[in-house]
Each structure stands twice: as structure tokens, then as C-alpha cells.
């Protein structure tokens, strides 16, 4: 029998890892030495088991609240299906879970709040290693001339995400029983603090709109439109209060 090329061996080996569970091509089984304690299929099985368990562990680390909510058995089952559809495409395993939330969202057998919780957990992963920025200090805000305010652009740091959900998933993240929650339109900001830790906090509708506009590059005067039902002075005061809070949290990088 001709010897398989390196490419052929690796194709069959890869299929035994990431293909249908337990399926080993006869040619591959024949290409592996059987020993006294382990046959060739058992030896290949060591790698197949390690592949699944290692990557499921990675997903469990990235989505700990989703895993807790679903329970070990259900999470592992879903993670296996996820891996079958989304094998890792990146040399760093850090990116493995990027498609988890959309994957869960597409499933009719998974409650929507689980997929939204996965979005929140993935945002926390993303901000953890997003590009660094030196946050703006409060002194900068105080030094701004009042006449300049309308045209200023407050540029957020890269380590900031807005998560939109139809459930209060921050409460699920904190351990709330989903049976006691009701759907509620929710926007959560997720960011990284100076120590490098990830945080998140819900935003009310106005604050969410202001932050959305700032992220989109809108100047201060446009961001004020979130408060059109208030006087310009009240709107400016409300927004500067929000900005002060966000600057303290380190999510505003600079004034453009």
C-alpha cells in the first residue's frame, strides 16, 4: 500500500478531531501503531477527546455565566455544536468564542436572554485586551471654554462596548433567576478600568443615546439632542454630569 502524504495524514487526523465524533478513517487507523495497552483508535481518541475538552474549557472560561445558567451538560452539548460549526480560525484561542452569541441567538431551543448574556460576556472579553488609551482627566473638562463646548467631540476609549439586549442581562450576569425577570430593553456599557479589569453597567435610555452618538463621532451639540425635552442649559448640565462620570470611569480618551 502506498504511504500517505503528510497532507493526507493531516487531513484524516483533522477530520478525526473536528469531524463527526468518533469517526476515524480506516486509512488513518491503519497508519497509527497499536500498542499493548492502547489500540490505534484509542490513541487517536486521546487527541479527539483533548481537542473537544480543551476548547470547551476555553468557551466555559469566556462564558462562565452562560455556562452556569445552562448547566454543565447543556453547555457542553451546545459548545460541541458550536465548535463543529465554528472551528478556531485564529492562532490564538482568544478568538474562539467570537461567534458564540450569534450562534445561540439563531437557535430556537435557547432562550433569547442566554444569547444576550453571551453578548455581554463576549464584550467583557473584548474590552479586556482592546487597544490601550490614556483616559481624559477631569482637569481637561474644567479647562474647556464654554463657547467651545458645542463643537467638541468626546472620543471614547477603544476598550468600550455597548451591549443592547431585550432582557436585563446584567442582572442575569449578577446571578438573578431568569424566572423572576421580565423582558426589558436594556443597554449596557462594558469597559476596562485602569487596572485592566472589565466592568459593565446599565445605561438609561438617554445616557445610552448620548454614548451611542459620541461613539459615532457626533459633536457635543448633537449629543445634546438626546435631551430635547429639556432646556439647553438642563441638557448641557445632564450631559456634563454623564461625561464627568464616564471620565472618572476612564472611558473617554480625548477631546477631538
Amino acid at each position: 500500500m502506498p504511504v500517505a502524504s503528510l497532507r493526507e495524514v493531516q487531513k484524516r487526523f483533522w477530520d478525526s478531531l473536528a469531524g463527526a465524533a468518533g469517526i476515524v478513517a480506516p486509512e488513518l487507523a491503519d497508519a497509527v501503531v497499536s500498542g499493548t495497552t492502547l489500540g490505534s483508535r484509542a490513541r487517536l481518541g486521546i487527541y479527539a477527546d483533548a481537542y473537544a475538552s480543551r476548547l470547551i474549557d476555553v468557551l466555559r472560561e469566556d462564558f462562565p455565566r452562560v455556562a452556569a445558567l445552562l448547566g454543565d451538560h447543556r453547555f457542553e452539548h451546545l459548545a460541541r455544536e458550536y465548535l463543529a460549526r465554528h472551528p478556531s480560525e485564529h492562532p490564538s484561542v482568544r478568538h474562539l468564542g467570537h461567534g458564540m452569541a450569534p450562534f445561540l441567538e439563531r437557535r430556537s431551543d435557547v432562550p433569547r436572554f442566554v444569547a444576550e448574556l453571551a453578548s455581554l460576556e463576549w464584550a467583557r472579553v473584548e474590552v479586556f485586551d482592546a487597544p490601550d488609551a490614556t483616559p481624559l482627566a477631569m482637569d481637561h473638562l474644567r479647562a474647556i471654554d464654554a463657547r467651545d463646548w458645542p463643537h467638541l467631540h468626546f472620543v471614547p476609549v477603544s476598550a468600550l462596548r455597548l451591549v443592547r439586549a431585550s432582557w436585563p442581562v446584567h442582572e442575569l450576569w449578577a446571578g438573578a433567576d431568569p424566572a423572576r425577570l421580565a423582558p426589558a430593553t436594556t443597554v449596557i456599557r462594558v469597559w476596562r478600568d485602569a487596572s485592566g479589569a472589565a466592568y459593565h453597567a446599565p445605561l438609561d435610555a438617554r445616557a445610552a443615546e448620548v454614548l451611542r452618538l459620541l461613539i459615532a463621532g457626533a459633536p457635543f451639540v448633537i449629543a445634546c439632542e438626546a435631551f430635547t425635552d429639556r432646556t439647553p442649559l438642563e441638557a448641557a448640565q445632564a450631559i456634563t454630569a454623564l461625561l464627568a462620570r464616564w471620565i472618572e470611569d476612564g472611558i473617554i480618551a480625548r477631546i477631538g
Binding site: F13, W14, A50, Y51, S88
Partner: peptide
Amino acid sequence: AYGRYYAHDLLPLPYTDEA
């Protein structure tokens, strides 16, 4: 890795002249 997918494992090679 195979076919642009990564196993995140250290998989064995055949010890051949080709490899």
C-alpha cells in the same frame, strides 16, 4: 492546524524524510 483551522493542540508528525 489544517485547512486554516486551528486545533490548539500539539499534534504528532510521522518521522519520515518527507516530514
